[in-house]
């Protein structure tokens, strides 16, 4: 990375974090949504401790998927509305690197809080302590993938009036591998098996998404702004 690109990357990251910090109240909402969805399940399936415990990995991960989807729109929405995105596209720097900065900033304020709250929810659902550690690890590896893949979907739909429901249709099928490996890792940890295979797969998905996802996202942004 040359110096000016480096500088652009960091100042963009700093800018996005600062903006979120100034609008703290809005950033909390996906987190509350995440907690609420998980709390709904005991009402839906009954307060059976054994059943809730077996379902806990799936419940928490599906809730994380929904919360991620809900917060995705904020990656590009306000910047699209006030014209900042056009400035980004016009800048001499590689758009994919700038997109990566925005996605990382987005994950820090919307994905990372989920990781912090998840242990609490896991305790609600009666998960044993060592499985909670694995759950946190899967969320740490998995939620950035959700933000990265989601960025492609948002970039494709940001110019649309009713992008939200289409966004769900676009990104959920692509989220399935993350869901499979992550919730399975937690289930296996609860059953006392080794989970290094699942965690390695999640790490591989993360690296793949980190390397590839910014490119189509940048291309889609250019398309949305043309």
């Amino acid at each position: 990375m040359n110096d000016s690109l480096y500088l652009a990357f960091w100042s963009l990251l700093r800018r996005d974090l600062l903006i979120t910090y100034r609008n703290r109240a809005q950033a909390i909402n996906p987190l509350l949504f995440f907690v609420l969805v998980v709390i709904l399940f005991p009402f839906g399936v009954g307060p059976d401790v054994v059943l809730l415990k077996t379902m806990a990995p799936g419940i928490i991960w599906v809730a994380a998927l929904l919360a991620a989807l809900l917060s995705l729109d904020s990656i590009f929405r306000s910047d699209f509305d006030d014209g900042f995105l056009e400035q980004l596209v016009l800048s001499p720097h590689a758009l994919s690197v700038l997109v990566l900065a925005k996605v990382i900033a987005h994950w820090l304020v919307s994905g990372f809080p989920l990781v912090l709250v998840a242990p609490l929810l896991a305790v609600f659902l009666g998960m044993p302590a060592d499985a909670i550690a694995v759950l946190v690890l899967t969320l740490l590896l998995g939620t950035p993938v959700l933000s990265l893949i989601g960025a492609i979907g948002v970039a494709l739909t940001v110019g649309l009036r009713q992008g939200g429901i289409i966004l769900a249709l676009l990104v959920f099928p692509l989220y399935i591998p993350v869901l499979i490996f992550a919730s399975n890792a937690v289930q296996m940890a609860m059953a006392g098996f080794a989970v290094s295979a699942q965690l390695s797969m999640l790490a591989a998905l993360l690296l793949l998404a980190l390397a590839l996802a910014p490119l189509p996202a940048a291309a889609a942004l250019r398309m949305s702004l043309s």
């Binding site: 492609i152 494709l156 099928p173 692509l174 399935i176 591998p177 998905l205 793949l208 889609a220």
Partner: peptide, 14 residues
Amino acid sequence: AILALVGLVNIPII
């Protein structure tokens, strides 16, 4: 086209 290409990369993974 962008979406189809992203899907193409993802199909084997899925």
